[in-house]
């Protein structure tokens, strides 16, 4: 698997916000085995230089940083934040969030497509946080995105995969585009389910950061994602309505 030509080993991307401490964050990233961590520039920097100690901590995690535009409510704001992030982290990668509603943190898909177009033409490699809408996904690809990150459920809800049908059809429509379920994951089983659908990776933050033991939870997610991916590759059986005996019944009297 690769994102914009960068080969990726771990299929678990994790956010760096809301941990009890940077020390616990570092341990959680290690336990998760993540290659990529996301970081919210907008909220954590204030004036850039003064946030440097935290950025040093994030860089020292040894993972590639995927800066995000969390908390931006317009395309323009997101573009400005992306440009700041490119300066701070020296990466063309940007997780693009344009929030349309403060209560549900639902993506503003119109602003998202607009910002994606501006940023890709400026040399950015955009990871758009989007809904499961197929047409929006098409537009994002048209705007130059080469990765899609549909939500499982609204950010921070922990509800899991709210619309499995839509996620499944996205996968079917875009067999060759890296797809990452981003947001809404609460438990390791949710992440495993996303991987069993054939998704390439899972991005989450709150489910680990706010767990009773974030480090143990990071490990649990790593296992779940490995299991889900292995299960997908192994080719699960098709569900069926009638029972099918797993031991031979030949020779037994049948009442049917």
């Amino acid at each position: 698997m690769d994102f914009y030509g960068v080969p990726i080993r771990s299929r678990l991307l994790i956010g760096t916000a809301q941990y009890p401490s940077p020390a616990i964050l570092a341990d959680a990233v290690r336990a998760a085995g993540s290659d990529i961590v996301t970081a919210s520039l907008r909220r954590e920097s204030g004036r850039l230089r003064e946030g440097q100690d935290f950025w040093t901590l994030i860089r020292d995690l040894g993972a590639r940083v995927l800066p995000n535009t969390a908390g931006c409510h317009s395309a323009k704001e997101a573009v400005t934040t992306a440009q700041m992030a490119r300066e701070v982290f020296g990466t063309p990668w940007i997780k693009l969030e344009v929030i349309g509603d403060a209560d549900t943190l639902q993506p503003d898909v119109f602003g998202l497509v607009e910002a994606a177009r501006i940023l890709t033409s400026d040399g950015f490699e955009v990871f758009p946080y989007t809904t499961t809408d197929l047409v929006v996904a098409e537009r994002l690809l048209g705007a130059g995105c080469k990765v899609l990150m549909p939500w499982g459920a609204p950010i921070g809800t922990g509800l899991g995969l709210n619309d499995v049908y839509a996620l499944r059809s996205l996968r079917a429509h875009f067999p060759d585009v890296p797809l990452v379920v981003d947001a809404g994951i609460g438990k390791p089983s949710h992440a495993a389910a996303a991987m069993e659908l054939g998704y390439d990776a899972v991005l989450l933050n709150t489910a680990i950061a706010k767990a009773g033991d974030p480090v143990a939870m990071a490990g649990a997610f790593a296992h779940a994602i490995e299991a889900g991916r292995a299960g997908y590759l192994a080719g699960p059986i098709e569900p069926r309505d009638m029972a099918a005996p797993s031991t031979p019944v030949f020779g037994r009297a049948s009442l049917a």
Partner: peptide, 11 residues
């Protein structure tokens, strides 16, 4: 709680 050592006024 903001990861920054910026003083300045309240935003």
């Amino acid at each position: 709680m903001i990861e920054s050592a910026a003083r300045g006024g309240v935003t």
